[in-house]
Design a protein around this nucleic acid. Sequence first.
DNA 1: CGAGATTCATGTGAAGTATACCTTTAGGCTTAA
DNA 2: AAGCCTAAAGGTATACTTCACATGAATCTCGTA
Length: 402
Amino acid sequence: MPFNVEKIFENVTKKSIFLNKSVLQSDYTPETIPHREQQIKQVAKILACSLRLEKPSNLFIYGKTGTGKTLVVKYVLNELNKKAAALKIPLKTIYVNCKLKKVSDTEYRILAELISQLGADIPATGLPTDVVYKKFINIIDENKQLIIIVLDEIDEAVKKIGDAFLYNFTRLNSEMMNTQISFIGISNDLTFIDSLDPRVRSSLSEEELVFPPYNALQLKDILIERAKRSFKRSCVSSGVIEKIAALAAKEHGDARRAIDLLRIAAELAEREGKSKLTLEFVDKAIEKIERDKIVDLVETQPRHHQLILLSILNFFDTLKNKEQKVYTGDIYNRYYDLCKQLKLEPLTQRRVSDIVAELDMLGLINAQVISKGRYGRTREIKMTLPNSLILKIKSIIEQQIY
DNA sequence: CGAGATTCATGTGAAGTATACCTTTAGGCTTAA
DNA sequence: AAGCCTAAAGGTATACTTCACATGAATCTCGTA
């Protein structure tokens, strides 16, 4: 096979279909947010009174992932900050993502994060929680001002440490002379608010806003907007965007994943040196995402699950014809030998039977209970994965074992 | 020839066990006053 | 002195084993035509 590294690099520099790839990356903040005008308006209306130095209502926002919650909030706060700066209004906004590890562990850490965003510093550990509260109040209560605190993915934090800290937060206002605080909570979990303490619930969600998933038409507009910025002119075949939008809308309505799909399809096209993103690459991208999912699944399986899967795969390898069926007993023998070979203690048949059922649930194999009459009852195992994937999975497992 | 009994190989359920993981409690230690 | 941190104790979920029984069609058995 002719192999020319120089050529690969040439392809990258010359033929790139990307104008600016970062537009399709998940941390990109677009300038416009299509089909969220309604939500932007509502959030803006609720927060607008802060420009008259009045405390806005606390706001609670729900919606599934990829519906633009974080984006809308950040956008509105950004505009608000600009306006406030122009009008010389003492307004501060703080954004905290509760899902990040360093923040979400304890109430203490959330407070510490808030304080550090305000520019002050506190020790990483050692202080009593109420002292931290006092310090927090001291910092912000020095001057007359308004503070808006955004707690993103708040459900994650509550899952870990309970809702007591939210109660403390909502009562902060009564302890301060000058400053007033508003909260904006963002949650992916639609049932989250019901699990809260009623007192917290009523004070935190004075206003509520629900972000619905995008439909196919809206996703199309979003994708077109991004595509304009990220690809060179006429690098995308007609129908590509429509196809992705339709698929994403059907499955989840998640804009982030739709954009991921677009990016992966484009990357595949580029890697093949094509100057145009055609429909076939969308299919390939879907396949790739599916493959990656399966590879990930296999990688994270416990050792014995992997060994059993490997035994099954080995069987299908020796029996060239794919339609062949294999029975639990054969698998168990192979698995048993494999364990002996690796000096591992094999699991019992009982457990293996359950694990085979689990692998079936995960869609890695197709196993059905059948009766072979005089020759007993067993699971009939069939393979559904393509050959290339089988080989890949085998090498992954073998790597992990040795 | 056919109804019913038998049989095989493993499925399935219940209950018990070991282990890791999490929560709770008690006591010592750090920090602020 | 407050109250946080650490360590031990206790509790719980998970992954597995053991024991016991269920399953269900191919096959066998045996009575009958």
